[in-house]
């Protein structure tokens, strides 16, 4: 479980352009559920996701991961946690251009020092799971939007993380591909993953498999409750 306690995140603190992105938010993300952070652009969803995923440190407040406080851990430990615990799916997919689909999927695991052959097998399994095995040797810039996203999902899962964090995952997808994405989310949920998504897409928010919707506005939580 991820537990945010009284979290505040201020950018450019002390400067004329100081900006508070998240204001005194407390939130518990339950394991093995699908949680959606819903809200308009600039509401603080992405910052909240970054805080949940150890990508950035809060200005104040405390963060606990599975009961262990991680707020002020040094960068090296945070990276290790990020690598082992979280898989990230970015809005822009953020695949590394010029290298193959397979290499992109294996990339997060390179620093772990696992044998290349083992990594390769695992990456191919994931690509097969998302029907992308035939594209393994292709360069990522040749992929369509839906294909790019499936590669990004496979990459997020290469280190077998407990949590999958997705920022506006359907923003660049049409309706059919968005529904396809939600089917993948259902698969992940079925595999026991905890999923946190930031989205204001009705296809995501109205989906039956979403367990909880947290509404964010101006950096604060407006409503928090089970999906109806």
């Amino acid at each position: 479980m991820i537990d945010l306690q009284d979290i505040q995140k201020t950018f450019n603190k002390g400067r004329p352009n100081e900006y508070v992105a998240v204001r005194r938010v407390s939130l518990k993300v339950e394991p093995q559920l699908v949680t959606v952070l819903k809200g308009p652009s600039g509401s603080g969803k992405t910052t909240l996701l970054s805080l949940l995923g150890c990508m950035t440190r809060p200005t104040s407040g405390r963060i606990f991961l599975d009961g262990r406080e991680i707020t002020s851990l040094p960068e090296r430990f945070l990276t290790e946690i990020r690598r082992r615990t979280y898989g990230f799916i970015f809005q822009q997919f953020n695949l590394v251009k010029g290298i193959t689909v397979l290499e992109n999927v294996m990339l997060p695991a390179y620093p772990t020092g696992e044998r290349r052959a083992v990594l390769r097998d695992r990456a191919m399994e994931l690509l097969e799971l998302f029907s992308m095995a035939h594209k393994a040797p292709s360069k990522v810039e040749w992929l369509s939007g839906g294909e790019s996203q499936r590669v990004a999902i496979a990459r997020a899962l290469i280190n077998d993380p407990g949590y999958v964090i997705a920022d506006e995952p359907t923003a660049h997808l049409d309706t059919a591909l968005s529904r396809e994405f939600m089917e993948i989310v259902a698969t992940l949920k079925g595999r026991g993953k905890t999923i946190v998504m930031a989205s204001h897409d009705p296809i995501v928010c109205s989906e039956g498999l979403v367990d909880r919707i947290v509404e964010v506005r101006d950096g604060s939580l407006v409503s928090d409750g089970p999906h109806r």
Binding site: G98, Y110, P111, T112, R116
Partner: peptide, 22 residues
């Protein structure tokens, strides 16, 4: 898992990266 494999993996990626800007 070993430091050698880590170096090898990262070196492989580096070489692939260099090839991108041939």
């Amino acid at each position: 898992m070993s430091a050698v494999e880590r170096h090898r993996n990262i070196l492989d990626f580096t070489l692939a990266s260099l090839m991108r800007r041939k």
